[in-house]
Amino acid sequence: MRLKFSRFLVAFLLIGSLMLAGCNAQEVGNNSSPTSTTAVETTTTASTEATSVSQTTSESNPGMTNSLPRLEGKATVVITVKGSPITVEVDGTNAPITAGNFVDLVQKGVYDGTVFHRVVREPQPFVVQGGDPQSKDPKSDRNLWGTGGYVDPKTNNERRIPLEIKPKGEKEPIYGKTLESARITKPPELQHKQGAVAMARSQQPDSASSQFYFALADLGFLDGNYAVFGYVTQGFDVVNQIQQGDRIDSAEVTQGAENLKTGQS
């Protein structure tokens, strides 16, 4: 019993740190402690499950998703840290909005010079997180690193993307809900395996912007709660060497740029 409680407590604390790191400045003071990730009840039938997927997809905000970049297919992004490359295969087939947002921000140079503000390896390997544009300025308040996102210069508003998770075997992702809240018992197509790349967010499902993280180990307790959009295919040893405060030298789309489709607005 003590071992089970210990594992639960570790998962609870790790999920909490990930959620809070994805907040924007206005949300930091308002967020309560996150609840732990628990298994969805297994009594859901296959027919109910299929209905839930359909309803959740149709209830998503089409105006929001239509205005965002999409990646129709796959792309390769090379992130260079301290002179060493990390190759990421970005999967727009299973996460078109999340992958499109990331590739678009790479092309805009948003990640160049940003800091990995959170590195969690204890009590067990967890994540390396970065992507806050505020961290580009070494004179900025370091206490705010990890609270910001990409601000569109055309609107002066922070771009937010919906939580996007595609259940295994389904044609379309669901938006704006975790798999648990959508009562989906199927696992996601893109899972938190070691080397997964996913979006950080606050407790609000549709709050992801530019911050992302690398999974340092298999993190199955995050599956269905955070949007994975790709995997490290080369350079995971570089990821393992990243320390808090290290900067991204550059991020570049090396293949698949033609698969990026810009939003309608």
Rank of each mutant, 00 (worst) to 15 (best):
T76Q: 11
G176A: 04
M1N: 10
L179I: 13
L20M: 09
L179D: 05
F229L: 04
P133K: 02
Y231W: 07
L14D: 08
D246V: 05
A75S: 05
Y226K: 11
L68E: 06
N225W: 09
P96T: 05
A198E: 03
Q264E: 03
R121F: 07
Y231T: 08
A99N: 08
G148W: 07
S140I: 09
Q204F: 05
V115P: 00
L18P: 00
F236A: 08
I97W: 11
A200S: 15
K193W: 11
N66R: 14
F8Y: 13
R183H: 12
Y175N: 07
P96R: 02
T51E: 13
F214D: 02
E27R: 12
V228N: 11
S135G: 03
T51A: 11
I184F: 06
V90R: 05
F221W: 13
F116H: 02
N157Q: 15
L14G: 02
G92Q: 02
S210Q: 02
R142M: 11
V253R: 01
R7C: 09
L105N: 06
T178H: 05
V78D: 10
G235S: 04
A21F: 03
Q107F: 00
T56D: 10
S32A: 12
S140N: 15
P167D: 08
S60W: 12
D206Y: 12
P167I: 02
A182H: 01
G109Y: 06
Q234N: 15
P123N: 11
K261L: 07
F126Q: 04
T155Q: 09
I165M: 12
F12W: 14
T43N: 10
D112P: 03
T155D: 10
R247A: 13
N66I: 00
N259Y: 01
Q26P: 00
Q211M: 14
S250K: 15
P205G: 06
N157W: 06
H117Q: 08
Y175D: 12
S209T: 14
V232C: 10
L3K: 14
D249L: 11
A21T: 14
G169W: 01
I184A: 05
V28I: 09
S47Y: 12
R183W: 07
I79R: 00
E27G: 06
F214Q: 03
G176D: 09
I97C: 12
I248W: 01
F102Q: 05
N30V: 04
F116G: 01
Q241V: 05
G131M: 06
V90M: 07
N259D: 04
L105Y: 12
A25P: 02
N259R: 04
A200M: 15
P69I: 05
